[in-house]
């Protein structure tokens, strides 16, 4: 972005920030900043994204009430998660988050578990909270993008993927992940968002002609989980 564009973009960002900040509660205001980061990322407004990021980073970090208990609960959550025991994992991650509200890892994992459970509104809220705590957390942006992609929210999937790339520690790896999604993801919204993200950053991208098909169509279940066969009349 050239200098001529930067100043109006910053003014706009400041105005957008100031308006709701006066009206909304802290948590709502923070979520609003995350949403703004998504919207601005989708239009490659780097200055705007950085402005929102700075606003979030100025928040004081919540103090841990019981850091040792939080660490123990988080480790329990990881163990349950590794065993695919999602309910138990969720409970442990929530406990970790209650004991240490500033623990972005715990709330991020809670978001991941919600996404795996298909509970997308809760997943979105948890991942947004992780980003309020750590706005440059690329993995949370990536998971949030998947939530939006799977709920057919194309614009926000694009913005969240753009932030995934922007904040990735290794951008070449992120680029290849985006290419992988753009070529192999069966969910149209997510696939198209990945392609748009590559284009947004002027990265080489190849649109697929025939979209990938789901590896397992709906309805394929193990034989032993099927209902008992009925005798033909």
């Amino acid at each position: 972005m050239n200098d001529a564009c930067r100043i109006p973009a910053l003014l706009l960002a400041t105005w957008i920030v100031a308006m709701p900040a006066a009206l909304a509660q802290d948590s709502e205001r923070n979520r609003y900043f995350v949403q703004q980061m998504i919207e601005m990322a989708a239009t490659n407004n780097e200055q705007g994204v950085t402005g929102m990021q700075r606003m979030l980073e100025q928040n004081p970090k919540p103090a841990a009430s019981d850091p040792a208990a939080a660490r123990a609960a988080f480790q329990r959550g990881l163990a349950f998660f590794g065993q695919d025991a999602l309910d138990a994992a969720l409970e442990a991650f929530q406990q970790a988050s209650r004991d240490d509200p500033g623990n972005a890892d715990a709330v991020n994992y809670a978001g991941l578990v919600y996404r795996k459970m298909g509970r997308f509104p809760e997943a979105e809220a948890a991942l947004q909270q992780a980003l309020v705590l750590e706005p440059t957390r690329a993995v949370a942006w990536f998971q949030l993008a998947q939530v939006y992609g799977l709920t057919n929210d194309a614009d926000r999937a694009l913005g969240a993927l753009a932030n995934t790339y922007r904040f990735a520690q290794n951008q070449m790896r992120a680029e290849e992940i985006l290419r992988n999604i753009a070529e192999n993801e069966a969910a149209d919204t997510l696939r198209n968002a990945a392609l748009e993200t590559l284009r947004l950053f002027h990265l080489p991208a190849e649109a697929v002609i025939v979209p990938p098909l789901p590896a397992n169509p709906d309805g394929i279940v193990p034989m032993n989980s099927m209902p008992n066969p009925t005798r033909a009349p």
Binding site: M172, R173, E176, I177, R179, N180
Partner: peptide
């Protein structure tokens, strides 16, 4: 391509894979 891409995503610091 699919295989090497997965390898690269798993280990992006290996010059042989890249």
């Amino acid at each position: 391509l699919a295989a090497f891409r997965q390898a690269f995503i798993a280990d992006p610091a290996d010059p042989e894979i890249a």
